[in-house]
């Protein structure tokens, strides 16, 4: 199966323009870029996709051993670029996808011209002097909650438990029409994401990069952004006024402006 089909790739915008790839983070799918892409379609060839296990990706392509680390996701990105025959792309990665972009760019630098890392964190767990923002018990609690399937999807659980899973309307109606995520894969993705440690991969990136750090991001705190900035060669750091972890949704204008400014200057 092709990577384009597997990852539900969408290409919009100007065919002849330079390529910009938007990669979603944990918990959502390519729809999360809907408020941002408008600002790029006139100038750029915009590539959107879903990570395997999310959105409209092919769930049957999910193999635990391949996606046991972020490298599997980075390979997917490289396969998509190879299939579309794209080079020198601008890669915009949100949250965990920021690190996926780092891994991909380190592996095949020629594919990338610039990286934009939105709310990146090379490691969520605290480690000695490093402050990731989460303790191990925090993460364990999260994983346990996800493992127990008590978050988010519980409204749909009762019928499943009662042995009547054939009511998909419950899933769509009660939860949402966006950000579809297979619960089992989401659990695994969370585990891979929140237990990953990609600090040593930062220095392998050679292309210019932009770090977009939100104010008050509980998932990627400011000091993590600083850490990335310090350790990522040739990087710029922009702190957004936007709060939370998803400036692309909560502050799409500010986010797009920052990306545009970076692309103009680099």
């Amino acid at each position: 199966m092709s990577a384009v089909a597997r990852n539900n790739v969408t290409v919009i915008g100007r065919d002849t323009g330079p390529a910009i790839v938007f990669s979603h983070g944990f918990g959502c799918d390519q729809h999360m870029w809907r408020f941002v892409t408008d600002r790029f379609v006139d100038e750029y060839r915009v590539v959107l996709f879903d990570h395997v296990g999310s959105g409209g990706s092919d769930l049957s392509a999910y193999r635990p051993e391949r996606y046991a680390s972020l490298h599997g996701y980075a390979e997917d990105v490289l396969e998509i670029l190879a299939e579309l025959d794209l080079r020198d792309v601008v890669f915009v990665g949100h949250s965990v996808s920021a690190m996926i972009g780092v891994l991909a760019a380190a592996a095949e630098p020629s594919r990338f011209s610039r990286l934009v890392l939105v709310g990146p964190s090379p490691r969520y767990l605290d480690d000695e002097d490093y402050r990731g923002g989460f303790t191990r018990p925090d993460i364990d609690e999260l994983l346990e909650s996800l493992d127990s399937n008590y978050l988010g999807w519980s409204a749909a659980m009762a019928p499943v438990i009662m042995g009547n899973p054939d009511r998909p309307e419950l899933g769509t109606e009660l939860v949402n029409s966006f950000c579809r995520t297979d619960p089992a894969i989401a659990r695994q993705f969370a585990r891979v994401t929140f237990l990953s440690d990609n600090r040593l991969d930062l220095s392998k990136v050679t292309v210019p990069s932009l770090i977009l750090q939100c104010t008050d991001d509980v998932i990627a705190p400011a000091e993590v952004g600083d850490y990335v900035h310090r350790n990522l060669p040739n990087s710029s750091l922009v702190v957004l006024k936007a709060t939370g972890h998803c400036p692309n949704l909560s502050a799409p204008e500010e986010t797009s402006d920052a990306i545009h400014a970076f692309l103009r200057n680099n």
Binding site: L151, W153, G244
Partner: peptide, 24 residues
């Protein structure tokens, strides 16, 4: 877990849909 869910799921959904219902 709730905090991360809020940031990664609930928040984005509200931005996109304007409402969510029956979320645990």
């Amino acid at each position: 877990g709730g905090r991360i869910f809020h940031e990664t799921h609930l928040g984005p959904l509200l931005h996109m849909q304007g409402e969510v219902r029956g979320v645990a």
